[in-house]
Design a protein around this nucleic acid. Structure first.
Lengths: 133, 133
DNA sequence: TGACAGCTCAGACGAAATGTCTTAACCTTG
DNA sequence: CAAGGTTAAGACATTTCGTCTGAGCTGTCA
């Protein structure tokens, strides 16, 4: 049976997280962060991971300088969204609603969080109206 | 970098889905459903997948008859929950709240769904009170 | 100038995960 | 009894993903 390649792999995610944490960075900087005692091979690993991330639209490369600087395009929120959508596609015929329902039923929310959620539901009402006008 | 093995793999999920759809079944039945033109090798594949699912707690095997009957232990809802939790662990420091927030912000809900969600939030209030008493 | 270090580019390779297959033994049925 | 179906065990093949090597270019320093 066909397997589904991962969208953003674990190692790619580690690179993304390093970019989220420190902002735009060079391969050298990322390698030192991810592999403190790394050698040439690890530099090349990070390079390859960035290349794949770039191909997937997860990072952008600035080639202006001789040493390229990479920045995250995909932030945590967006990645969460991608993963939720992929899960909905696989398990819920594409609908996000079962995921939402499940979370509401199982997540222990503080009164503050509940209020926040109610506000989100109400504000979710309003953009819809604006979109109509 | 270490990779994370999948909880329930794609092929295992296909087996689970067949069980969800038809209820308890034998290897023969599942093989015929999943591999209509399958031979002995496909029978063995399904057997192995079931064995792994059993080890993961996803299915239960009834050995009373000579021919074993398998039933899903893990239903779709539970699998969704497992995956959401895994996602929260990986992307949100373990908190489900960001996932919930994201879904509320991005899911286009009908008025009925919104009302349903409000009701869920309110009912989520009440069990909490019962649990205190 | 030459050597060296750092960088980019390209692609092969190694390891891990996962799906597939083979073999042997046992049981039931015709 | 032979054949077919089943279980059990484990090896094997394929795919995915992380790692590594080699070549070429540039800039710096002795």
């Amino acid at each position: 049976m066909a397997r589904t390649p991962q969208d953003i792999t674990d190692a790619e995610l580690a690179v993304l997280e390093a970019l989220w944490e420190r902002g735009p960075a060079t391969i050298r900087q990322l390698t030192d962060a991810l592999y403190p005692d790394g050698g040439a091979a690890q530099y090349a690993t990070v390079q390859k991971l960035l290349e794949r991330l770039e191909a997937k639209g997860g990072v952008r490369r600035n080639r202006q300088a001789a040493v390229h600087v990479f920045a995250a395009v995909l932030d945590r929120e967006q990645l969460i969204g991608r993963r939720l959508r992929a899960m909905a596609d696989q398990l819920c015929g594409g609908s996000l609603t079962p995921l939402l329902t499940h979370l509401v039923q199982t997540t222990k929310l503080s009164p503050e969080q509940r209020q926040e959620l109610r506000a989100l539901i109400e504000s979710a009402d309003r953009p819809t109206r604006k979109e109509r006008s």
